[in-house]
Design a protein around this nucleic acid. Structure first.
Lengths: 202, 202
DNA sequence: TCAAAACGTTAACAAAAGATAAGAAATTGA
DNA sequence: TCAATTTCTTATCTTTTGTTAACGTTTTGA
């Protein structure tokens, strides 16, 4: 896949948020960069500032933390989604999260400087403010649901809900990643699955 | 306290995000409304659309869910903070959260329509996009930390962290609200407190 | 292709959390 | 003021989860 094709995918996706005129798009594309990650390479590393706001043209990533030497997966992103250690990107402070490619992954990135330049560029400023607002609002809504799930649901209920809504995650991620994503251990998820399945068999 | 004083407090707070010119501020203030909630009155109700994005001039609110008939507190907001069932406000879908005043509470509200009108008003559009972006980004950062705390920390660790950072909550909220906010039962929090305190006494 | 690594399940035990109830202290509100 | 309510703790018992380890299977990568 070449850069032109990647840009078409990017533009199509961005139209969920904003629509660019030809002039705006040309200016916009001057501010993005193309990168590729091989499997297991990192997009972001704990204790460093995540300087990029990425879009996954293809591939997937997982977000994880190292807690007492143990690898704890907290989230996933797939092709045609954004990826970033958002707080780190916005506040220019070190992140606590690793973001790692799970397969060969193609990205289009906006650096922090490029983002600021576009916000200061008369051609793009208004649209970039709106873009930033709508993207932040979108992820805010996702987070609101996710926090509510930790407050109001048991691990088993969270897993049952994932069964209904998490097609990509369930089909593409190993179970021990999913367990940590749900806030439990892999052994515990295995037991929950057994609890859920057995009554059906009886 | 009169509306003029409330507006001064509001404007001062908003300057964390954007600064309004005199003309902008005059237009802005035409789009806000003033309300008061008595203790236990609701700012938002589950199964209805939350139509307002509020600012607490004074007072405080708690966010809660009714789960199997039980009242589960999930969050708090205090004077000089915003309050809203944000996803419901943005997407115009029914919320699952009640927001209730914990004391006599004074608010300045932006309705969804007023927000849209300001976004469409040439005088305010750019500043409102920016305002919306920065507010959403701010809360996004808070949510990122909160989700990480559920993934990477035990209930005891979350409580210990709250002891370091949650002055307002600890001093002003009853312990059973705090327990649910941490994702555990009040009985469990009482035990955690005992576990933490005892070694100090010995 | 083949050894190494990763993955999922299960078992056994320990630790933590949930549910329920009782009781004391503090707060509230009429 | 004073009865009712709320709040917090404690105890008991149950359930769930965590921890560790073992085992067989699958996947990976050199």
């Amino acid at each position: 896949m070449d850069a032109a094709t990647a840009l078409i995918i990017y533009k199509t996706y961005l139209e969920r948020y904003v629509t660019f005129s030809t002039e705006e798009w040309e200016t916009f594309t001057q501010h993005v960069t193309f990168t590729k990650l091989k499997k297991k390479q990192h997009f972001a590393t704990a204790d460093t500032v995540c300087d990029k706001f990425g879009f996954l043209v293809s591939g997937s990533v997982r977000y994880y933390h190292i807690i007492n030497g143990e690898d704890i997966t907290s989230y996933f992103s797939f092709e045609q989604e954004f990826t970033s250690s958002y707080k780190s990107f916005l506040t220019r402070t070190p992140t606590i999260t690793y973001i790692q490619a799970l397969e060969e992954t193609r990205l289009i990135n906006i650096s922090y400087d490029a983002f600021q330049k576009m916000l200061a560029n008369p051609i793009l400023a208004h649209k970039m403010e709106r873009f930033g607002r709508l993207v932040a609002e979108h992820y805010l809504c996702c987070y609101e649901d996710r926090v509510a799930s930790f407050i109001t649901q048991s691990p088993e209920e969270r897993y049952l809900q994932l069964l209904q809504t998490g097609r990509d995650i369930l089909q593409r991620m190993p179970q021990h990643y999913i367990a940590h994503f749900l806030g439990i251990t892999p052994v515990s998820l295995s037991r929950i699955r057994k609890r859920i399945m057995e009554p059906v068999v009886k």
